[in-house]
Structures are given as structure tokens and as C-alpha cells.
């Protein structure tokens, strides 16, 4: 491996890494022959797994959000073909729980995923045998995967989330009393975690897009000349692309609904 002369500039940042377009176009998985649709499905399935596991582990939403961003980023460096998505999802939630100061035991993480898998296959509930080889193996796989995620992302694992921006921006727009608008924007934001928008845009732009979508849906007028979001450093072009990506969420495969169904059961 060639030793670069300069210190790597990427490493020393707490800002979210924004990936260049070419990196997002040709992913490692697609280079390995995986279809684009299948990759999208695996991305969404992994994120739904993380969401379900997070609820069962009683983690705050921010931990799930961080885990989902880590998961998405990881698979722009590594291929789904070579690295199991379920193990990676486990490693991401395990790591994100620590990052967001709500650490969970690795045993609980392994067990929760085991539980979700049994639910998906409509098997009766059962606690994993902590003496089994299967458990032992899973555990060491997750620890290895955690280190791979850290290494692959160059330890840039502290994710900035747009949740805070949404609240601040709505305050500036004098809409902070409209709970329906806040809730809708919030939902859009959580849904967009299943896509790659966090690799494309800054948290500020994502916050703007979420507000824009929600306001449009609820028929709430916001200043348009000049567009309000330009104050928050988002451009019209960025917003349009974002809208396109989010619309994809509505048309994805059965896989999510399957997992979503489990999430609903768990949440209820």
C-alpha cells in the first residue's frame, strides 16, 4: 500500500461526509454484479432491521438514525455480496448506541436480531442459547464488523442529524406552533434515512427539503420570492433532486413492508 505524503484531511472532521456523485453511481455491490433494485432493497431492509431492533432495545431515535447513516455509508465502500447485511446492521446499531451514549450489551443486540428473524419467518418466540456456537460465532462476527465499519469510515462516525435544524428553521419561519407540520417534516426525515440522501446533502438541506415537502402537502404557504430555503443555504436544484429521491421511498419492494409489519407489531 502506497504511503500518501500528506495527512488525510478527511479524517479530522465532525461534519457529515458528502460523497461525490460517481461514488454514488457505481457502488461496490453493483460492481460485484448485484442489481440496483436488489441493492436498494438490501439497504432498506437493513435500515428497517435497525429501526425494529432499536425499538426493542429501547434506544432513542437518534441512535437508530446514526446507525442507519453508518450502514448506508459503509455499503458505499464495501459490497453487499462480500459482507453480510444483517451482521453489518447489528454492528451499526451496536456502535451507534455507544456513539449516542446509550450503550447496549452485545448479547442483547444479537438476541434482538434473532428475535426479529424468527418473527419474520413466523416462528415462535425463543431466547437464543447463550452457550451455543451460533451465539458465540455471531458475537465475534459483530465485533469484527464493528471494527470494519470504523476502519472503512475512517472513524468519521459522529453523524450530524437534521432533527435540530427542522425545529430551528420552523421557529424562524414562525411555524413552530403547527404540530402537524412538525410531525410531518419529522416523518419525512426519518423515512429519508432509508435512502442515500445523507450521503448526498448536508443536514441543513435535508431539513429544508423535509419542511418543503410537508408544507406543500398541508397547503401551507412559505415565502417564495426569494425562496425561503436559500436563507438556510439550500438551492432549488438540490431540493428538486431530493424530492425525486424521496419519491422512490414510496415505491419500494415488499421486503420493507414485511419488516415494517414486524416493527408495527413490536411498537404496539
Amino acid at each position: 500500500m502506497a504511503v500518501p505524503t500528506e495527512f488525510s484531511g478527511v479524517v479530522l472532521s465532525l461534519e457529515n461526509t458528502i460523497y461525490p456523485d460517481e461514488k454514488l453511481q457505481e457502488t461496490p455491490s453493483q460492481l460485484d454484479g448485484l442489481s440496483k433494485e436488489m441493492e436498494t432493497n438490501l439497504r432498506i431492509a437493513g435500515c428497517e432491521y435497525i429501526q425494529a431492533a432499536g425499538i426493542l432495545l429501547k434506544l432513542p431515535q437518534v441512535a437508530m438514525a446514526t446507525a442507519q447513516v453508518l450502514y448506508q455509508r459503509y455499503y458505499y465502500s464495501k459490497s453487499f455480496v462480500k459482507y453480510n447485511y444483517e451482521i453489518c446492521a447489528m454492528a451499526c446499531i451496536f456502535l451507534a448506541a455507544k456513539i449516542e451514549e446509550h450503550p447496549r450489551r452485545i448479547r442483547d443486540v444479537v438476541n434482538v436480531f434473532y428475535h426479529i428473524r424468527r418473527k419474520l419467518n413466523e416462528l415462535p418466540n425463543k431466547v437464543m442459547d447463550y452457550m451455543s456456537n451460533e451465539y458465540f460465532h455471531k458475537k465475534s462476527e459483530v465485533i469484527k464488523a464493528e471494527r470494519r465499519v470504523l476502519k472503512e469510515l475512517g472513524f468519521c462516525v459522529h453523524v450530524k442529524h437534521p432533527h435540530k435544524c427542522i425545529v430551528t428553521y420552523l421557529k424562524i419561519l414562525e411555524c413552530n406552533d403547527n404540530t402537524e407540520l412538525i410531525q410531518k417534516a419529522w416523518n419525512y426525515m426519518n423515512d429519508s434515512l432509508r435512502t442515500d440522501v445523507f450521503m448526498r446533502y448536508t443536514p441543513e438541506t435535508i431539513a429544508c427539503a423535509c419542511i418543503y415537502l410537508s408544507a406543500r402537502q398541508l397547503g401551507i404557504g412559505l415565502p417564495s420570492n426569494p425562496p425561503w430555503y436559500e436563507v438556510f443555504d439550500a438551492t432549488t436544484k438540490e431540493m428538486e433532486v431530493y424530492l425525486l429521491i424521496v419519491s422512490v421511498i414510496d415505491s419500494v419492494d415488499m421486503l420493507i413492508y414485511q419488516v415494517k409489519y414486524v416493527v408495527d407489531i413490536i411498537a404496539s
Partner: peptide, 9 residues
Amino acid sequence: PYNYPFIHD
């Protein structure tokens, strides 16, 4: 090709 050198040896 996508092994960005985020972390050195």
C-alpha cells in the same frame, strides 16, 4: 476501486 484511504496503516 472504492477503498478510499480514510485510514492509513
